[in-house]
Design a protein around this nucleic acid. Structure first.
Lengths: 128, 128
DNA sequence: TACGATGTTCGACGAACTACGAAATTGACG
DNA sequence: CGTCAATTTCGTAGTTCGTCGAACATCGTA
């Protein structure tokens, strides 16, 4: 078999119009995945293994799959690394303002002690 | 014991500052609960049993509990009926624009056939 | 070819979720 | 008081979710 052919099925992403709101909300309702999205908001793209999350590689891979299949992120392959990026343009076209609003909300400190979704260690582009 | 005392623990609602974003997103990621929220957006309040959802009463009660504990809705008792209302003011203060943006997104038709989150059969409901 | 690095897939497990029916609670009405 | 109506609580079944470890695949390099 040709060595240039990747065995992966080209990383199926949903088309913009197929992005389902409930899938997106579900994907965002997990702290690990929300962290990934928040980090991705500040950078154009990033390799999978470089996210500040504390889970096993297989678990991380699962989360990326959920994010990708929900339409929140896209992934491209480069060598044996996989880079993820937020689908900001598609999301904005499909659900205007949603991503910005949700991420702004995520940046808000909570009345609790900043446990779960209160104080993310990610401030993305707020400063800039 | 005084008969005027309701046995229910006064329907605990989270304080505004305690509303957790991930809990809210998770609550909204279920089609039944999203329908409830969408209906509630059009009316100030509504009795539990009058929502256009197709689940058993006990299941519905569970969904209302999830919505209430997430901070999305408030419930008050009147006789043996329980009225639910969106906590629009609290939500707006906690997560500005979130509710509007999500519900606007929910109203968008999808590329699919409008099955799940595409076209909610909810508009005014004033007819009843 | 062998090795290390990166990342996925598979199989498993416990926890959480959604669903339902039955029973219990509460209030209105006769 | 007895009954109906609305809703919750309890117990339970089936599914989904998040997590991990082990094994596999790919790429770059020695």
């Amino acid at each position: 078999m040709p060595r240039s052919t990747r065995r992966r099925p080209a990383l199926a992403h949903p088309a913009t119009e197929e992005i389902d709101l409930l899938d997106v909300l579900h994907a965002l309702s997990d702290p690990t995945r929300m962290t990934i999205v928040a980090v991705l908001r500040a950078e154009p793209e990033r390799a999978c293994g470089t996210f500040p999350v504390d889970v096993a590689p297989s678990t991380l891979s699962h989360h990326f799959k959920v994010l990708r299949e929900s339409g929140l992120i896209s992934q491209r392959e480069e060598a044996n690394r996989r880079f993820s990026a937020l689908r900001t343009v598609d999301l904005e076209r499909r659900f205007p303002g949603l991503l910005d609003t949700v991420l702004a909300a995520y940046g808000r400190p909570g009345g609790e002690d900043g446990g779960r979704g209160g104080g993310p260690g990610v401030r993305g582009g707020e400063a800039g």
